[in-house]
């Protein structure tokens, strides 16, 4: 997704000028992706340079220039809607990188890192759910509700992934022989198994690693 395609989609509804496009973009995405007017104008400049939009008549009394989508722009827009969003690209997920570093950095309580993130993501998910409940009770802004759904599902996926990380970390710690260098994760698991005196080490492994209900 780029701002380019967002603006082309808005111009497909009819000619408009930058300031108005920004407001429409906000309304369409529920302000989940705030743009500043500067970004809108610079994107319009590039779209015009590439022949995807054209100026729609002379500037109005306030000096504002309206743009319209061109045939080339419409073809580009149709192509965008027709193609899937690529999941490729540089891995820039800060959380994934943070956890990868956490498991390899001595002295980091990985389970605590996981839980801190899970609580924060859950708090965000609770806020989204409240917004969604309100949106669904309202007159029915389907576009906004679908944007919220997307954020809800993304948060849910992140929490699920964190659950998975927690189970993996606990299992790995249980398998590893306890050494002074096996730090925080081993401590947490040791605490868990300490509640079952005499239980063999694999029992501690089985609990967090078992399937979820």
């Amino acid at each position: 997704m780029s701002i380019r395609h967002g603006l082309l989609a808005l111009l497909e509804r009819g000619p408009s000028h930058g300031y108005h496009l920004r407001a429409e973009f906000d309304a369409a995405t529920g302000a989940t992706w705030p743009l500043n007017v500067g970004q809108v104008y610079s994107t319009l400049d590039r779209l015009e340079r590439d022949g995807l939009v054209a100026q729609d008549g002379p500037p109005d009394a306030d000096g504002r220039i309206a743009y319209r989508i061109t045939d080339v722009g419409q073809a580009e827009l149709r192509g965008w809607f027709a193609s899937p969003v690529s999941a490729k690209g540089a891995p820039r997920d800060e959380l994934a990188i943070k956890l990868a570093l956490a498991v390899t950095t001595p002295g980091v309580d990985v389970l605590r890192v996981v839980q801190t993130q899970r609580t924060a993501t859950m708090t965000g998910l609770q806020e989204l759910t409240r917004l969604k409940a309100r949106a669904d009770d309202g007159p029915g802004d389907l576009a906004w509700s679908l944007v919220l759904d997307s954020l809800v599902f993304r948060s849910e996926a992140e929490i699920r992934w964190l659950d998975h990380c927690e189970a993996r970390v606990a299992r790995a710690a249980a398998r590893r022989p306890a050494t002074p260098t096996a730090t925080a994760t081993a401590t947490a698991t040791a605490t868990a198994s300490a509640t079952a005196p005499g239980a063999p080490a694999p029992a501690a492994d089985a609990a967090p690693g078992g399937g979820r209900r």
């Binding site: 839980q115 899970r118 924060a120 859950m122 998910l125 759910t129 699920r160 868990a192 609990a207 979820r212």
Partner: peptide, 29 residues
């Protein structure tokens, strides 16, 4: 529940691990 999406309907979400409340989210946290 084990579904985060469903838990999110609650005012507070309490996280249990090994029988201990390890954290909770929501306004009362």
């Amino acid at each position: 529940t084990h579904e985060a999406r469903h838990a999110a309907w609650a005012d507070r979400v309490v996280f249990l691990r090994d029988g201990v409340v390890v954290d909770q989210s929501g306004p009362a946290a």
